[in-house]
Structures are given as C-alpha cells and as structure tokens.
Amino acid sequence: MSGDRPSPLVIERILRDRQGVWQQIVADDDLNALTGRMLASSAVALACYGAVLGAFHGVLMALTSAVKLPLLFLITLAICLPTLYLFNLVFGARLSVRQSLALVMVAITVTSMLAVAFAPISLFFLITAPDYGFFKLLNVAILTLSAVVGLRFLTGGMQVLNAHGLLAPTVTAPPAVVAPPAAVAAPAAVPAPAVPAQPVPVGAVPAQAVAEPVAVAAPASANGTVTAAFPPGMVPPGHPGAARPWATPPMRRSEPEQRPASMTLLYVWILLFGFVGTQLAWTLRPFVGSPGENFALFRSIEGNFYAEILRTIGNLF
C-alpha cells in the first residue's frame, strides 16, 4: 500500500494513484492528513470558481461568491455525512467516521477541481457573451457535470471497500458436516452375450423349447457398459436397471454475489445529497447576481431551484 506521498496537488495523486488512495482509506492510515489536504484544495478551487461566477455582477459579488460556494459544499457535507455513516452502521458496515469523511472528500475534491478546470471556459463566455440566462445555465451545467464525475469516484471507492469486506457484515461459516461413507453397492450381474441364432429346420425343435422365452442381448452403451433394455417398471429384482438422466438433479449455476445494502443506500444518499445541495444553493443565492438588481448578500426565499431553472430555460428559448 502506498502512503500519502508528497505531491504538488492532491488531485494529482487521486487521479494517478486512486487505488493507493482507496487502499489508504481501507487501512485507515494517516487519513487526517489526507482529508486536510483535500479540504484545503477543495476550498481554494471552489473559491476561485465562485469568484468567476460573481464577476458577472461585480467585485463585491465575486468576493461573496468566493466565500459562499465553498460553504455550500461543506455545509451540505456536514448535513448529509451523519446519514451516510448511520446507514452503514445499521446495515452492518465497518466504516469509521474518518473513512466515511475521507471517502466523501475524494468526491468533493474531484468535483471542485473539475469545476475550476472549467473556469476559463466560463470566464470566456462571460467576456464574449455576457447574457445572464445563458451564463447561469452554463455554470449550472458545469457544476452538474463536475458533481456527476465526483460521485462516480465515490461509488468506485465504495466498491473497493465492499471488495475488502468493509460494507458487508462478517458472517461466521458453520462447521463442516462430514457425510458418512456411502455403502458399497454389490456388483451387478452382467448378462451373458447373445449367441447368434442358427436356422433350425421346421419340426426339429420340440414344442417345449419353442414355448420357453428366449434371452435377448442388452445393447451396449457408448462407454462400453452393458445396460438392460427392460420396459419401464419391469426391471427384475436385484438388477441395477438402466441409468436415468433425470435421477441426478441438474447442476445449478453459482448465484451472483449479492450487492450489500450499503451500496444500495449509497445511491439513495447521493440523491439526498443532491437535493440538500440544490436547496442550500437556492437559500445562499445569489452567486451570479441579476444585472438589473443591486448587490445583496442574500435574497428572500421564494420558489425553488428547479422552478427557477425551468423558467430560465423558457426565457432563453
């Protein structure tokens, strides 16, 4: 396992050595330093992107957005992290609080770094096409795409933890039961080979000989063993009988490994994280600032985030 190696950017290690990061989280090795570096880098990246958002309205809005955007992600994490941790405990997972925090911080770090990578594109459209509706939808799309990529890292990390048994409860296997030795079957009598029939003149065979049953040779199977060809239910006592293909139950394919409940609840938690984050963003607005309104640190709470996005799309087209 690779430790927290010195690197100019923690995002470089996450992208280049993600397996090493997952292994460090699994081993719970020096997670305080790793989480601190991810927290610092995410705050700086989100502050830079928030400044680009607020620059549409002016300097004051750029400064306030540079503070409010990191707070948006950190407050959302503080609200939703206890739910994720308790979900894991209820369903038998063995994750600690530090492991859960480090896992979610990986997703937030990837999201923030990808968002700041889009900052030059957002700044370009701010300079060349300063349309409020288009600029707002562009940045909503950038943040949504960045969050989707970051959450994919979160699910990938949870799958690694699941492979190491940290999500499923440990189950003690029952002791193996030794089956008694099977009884040795008596060797079956092999019928004598048939003698080819010779033509016999009429009248040379006594009547008693004609009345007696004639032994018929049993056909040989493909592997050379001789099997008796008796009608169903007419096998004489002591004879092994013909092999029935349905006597042995067919072999079933091994059942696929069931996904632990923690993985299913992770997707529920991701939806919860998204709803809490969007509602909090609507509460902390403005981040961009309407061009026809004066500077305001906060706006009155009215409507909701999704209705505003649909209204903006309708006005744009």
Rank of each mutant, 00 (worst) to 15 (best):
I121D: 00
L114M: 13
A107Q: 10
T111C: 13
L95D: 07
N88H: 08
L114W: 02
A102C: 12
A102T: 15
F124E: 02
A93C: 04
A117W: 12
A93P: 07
S112H: 03
L101Q: 00
F87V: 12
V104P: 00
L101M: 13
F87G: 03
I121H: 06
L101T: 14
F124V: 08
S96L: 04
I121F: 15
A117T: 12
L95F: 05
L103H: 07
A119W: 00
F124W: 14
S100H: 00
R94A: 10
G92E: 09
V97D: 01
P120T: 11
F87I: 14
L95T: 14
P120V: 10
V90H: 12
S100T: 15
A119K: 09
M113H: 03
A102F: 03
A107C: 13
L95K: 09
L89V: 10
P120N: 08
F91Y: 15
L103Q: 12
S100G: 11
S112Q: 04
A119P: 04
R94D: 04
T111Y: 02
I121M: 14
I108D: 05
V116R: 02
F118T: 05
A115C: 06
L89R: 15
A119S: 11
T109M: 08
I108K: 05
T109F: 01
F91C: 10
I121A: 14
F124M: 14
V97Q: 03
F91L: 07
L114F: 07
M113S: 12
L101C: 03
L114S: 11
T111A: 11
A117R: 05
V106H: 08
G92P: 09
L123S: 12
A115G: 14
R98P: 06
L95P: 05
A102P: 00
F118K: 03
L95E: 08
F87Q: 13
L114Y: 10
F124Q: 06
L103K: 01
I121V: 15
L123Y: 11
F118I: 10
Q99T: 03
N88K: 03
T111W: 10
Q99C: 09
F124Y: 14
S122V: 05
